[in-house]
Nucleic acid binder design. Structure first.
Length: 322
DNA sequence: GGTGTGCGGTAGCATCTACC
DNA sequence: GGTAGATGCTACCGCACACC
């Protein structure tokens, strides 16, 4: 038993594993998980697709621009005290500072960045002056094509330099969340899965949960391992800092399943604790019983859908002026 | 021009927590 | 279990401004 896992989570995991091993005894993978083999130029893996009804909330671009412009502290040299003085003197937004002797240049520079519409540049600028958890950061989504936004989540054999066994991506299409999961049915299929997954997310804005610190660097590291070329460096909205800030006054526990339960009232049945994913997968490799893969795929799909819903919820709050 | 004050920026540190 | 990043705190530096 892993020492960093609570007893009850471990024993619940064992119960789930046993249940699925029994349920799928003698079954083949195709019976347990509906999907299709897909090929890239370096091999094959298994693709699982599904969809859920959902309508995504978006932030209006004019509203987003106004929200950014109304925060004088986004200019270098303006802190709480200066902001207060400027407001008293009648400077209500950054555009009005174009007429200010001292702040004209900084205001002009900031305006040119926002009006370039380049989400990457705007994000870098905001990260310089605001904590990454600041809700104002979400306004940058208005400068991206929300239809191209991809939520991502991976399942791995450990926390560092171990194979990735499942790559999950979710995007919206009309009034649906579409999930696409690339499963490595064997470690040998990891490279093909990476290649197909990165082709899907390439150049799209990303949404993740702790993905800036975990998923993306991990994928990049595996890409280098297989000599598959450069890093994924897309515009990236990591929901973890926003969730931490949101949950701060309620509980220090900011795991995705906790916030999902809090916001959407959903309790997951037969979920795999993340720390047991490697054990479940090894059980599948050892026995060829696809049962343990079923809750892994389901856990990943739930995470993806939750991520999109969480993103949408926070955008909705932004529109409401929070 | 010299000096003092206030404010903003930054660096360093400890602690915590998410991911599998 | 390793790693990266956020947060909160403190201390210090540098700049702008007001005053003499």
């Amino acid at each position: 038993m892993p020492s960093w896992l609570y007893d009850d989570a471990y024993f619940e995991g064992q119960r789930v594993k046993k249940k699925y091993l029994e349920a799928y005894d003698g079954a083949c993978l195709e019976d347990a998980i509906r999907g299709t083999p897909v090929r890239s130029d370096i091999g094959e893996c298994y693709l699982i697709e599904s969809s859920t009804d959902f309508s995504l909330s978006k932030i209006d671009r004019d509203n987003a621009r106004n929200a950014l412009m109304s925060n004088l502290r986004l200019l270098r040299g303006i802190g709480a005290g200066t902001e207060q003085k400027l407001r008293k003197a009648g400077y209500s937004d950054i555009e009005s500072l174009l007429g200010h002797r001292r702040w004209h240049d900084e205001a002009k520079r900031f305006l040119s960045i926002v009006d370039s519409g380049d989400a990457c540049r705007i994000q870098q600028e905001l990260w310089h002056w605001l904590p990454k958890s600041h809700p104002l950061n979400l306004n940058i989504t208005a400068f991206t094509e929300v239809e191209r936004l991809v939520a991502l989540d991976i399942e791995t054999m450990g926390l560092f330099s171990r194979p990735i066994i499942l790559f999950g991506a979710a995007f919206t299409s009309g009034d649906k969340i579409v999930t696409r999961q690339y499963l490595a049915r064997d470690i040998d299929e990891e490279a093909a899965a990476i290649s197909l997954f990165t082709a899907l997310v390439e150049n799209n804005p990303l949404v993740s949960y702790n993905g800036r610190a975990f998923d993306v660097p991990y994928i990049n590291q595996r890409r280098w391992y297989y000599d598959l070329g450069g890093d994924i460096e897309n515009v990236h909205f990591d929901m973890l800092p926003f969730a931490r800030r949101f949950m701060k006054s309620k509980t220090p526990d900011a795991r995705l399943t906790t916030i999902e339960k809090y916001l959407f009232g959903q309790e997951r049945l037969d979920d795999v604790p993340g720390a047991l994913v490697p054990e479940f997968y090894e059980e599948y490799l050892r026995t060829h019983n696809p049962g343990p893969l079923v809750p892994i795929v389901e856990h990943n799909r739930n995470d993806l859908v939750s991520l999109v819903r969480l993103f949408s919820k926070f955008c909705e709050d932004c529109n409401g002026g929070h």
